[in-house]
């Protein structure tokens, strides 16, 4: 369990890399932008996936997001416009981190538990 903290340290592992101290209460898109990190975005409310980044260490709270399906979440994706850090984190950001974000659904179908959280079948239920 992460300790309570006002700030966490975010390490950006790609795109020139960098380490930034950010407010724990605010979305990572806002705080990283203020540090000058150039990030993609679209809707800014967690619905469109444009700002997706890959979390390779640490944890975030992204309960507000409605864009990611469970497979994308299992692959480490977070949407920065609503994700707030709950520990120190390491992120890969931008489209360079999207190698596993997009799939051709005719080539690679989702299992029932891999759908978006609101319609996925919980693992173990059939």
């Amino acid at each position: 369990m992460a300790q309570l903290s006002d700030t966490w340290t975010i390490t950006i592992a790609n795109q020139g890399s960098g380490r930034f101290s950010v407010d724990a209460q605010r979305p990572l898109l806002d705080t990283l932008e203020e540090h000058g990190v150039d990030l993609p975005y679209g809707c800014r409310y967690g619905g469109c996936i444009t700002c997706a980044a890959k979390l390779t260490a640490g944890a975030v709270d992204q309960a507000e997001q409605v864009a990611l399906n469970n497979r994308q979440i299992a692959n480490g994706y977070v949407v920065l416009c609503v994700a707030r850090p709950t520990s120190d984190c390491t992120l890969e950001v931008g489209v360079d981190s999207h190698d596993k974000l997009y799939r051709n659904p005719f080539l690679d179908p989702l299992e029932p538990h891999e759908l978006k959280p609101d319609i996925a079948t919980p693992i173990g239920e059939s």
Partner: peptide, 18 residues
């Protein structure tokens, strides 16, 4: 809905009437 199609196309959501 925008929240359905904006992130991409999950074919499986067609069966869920999304």
């Amino acid at each position: 809905a925008p929240n359905t199609f904006m992130p991409g196309f999950d074919l499986e959501e067609v069966g869920h009437l999304k």
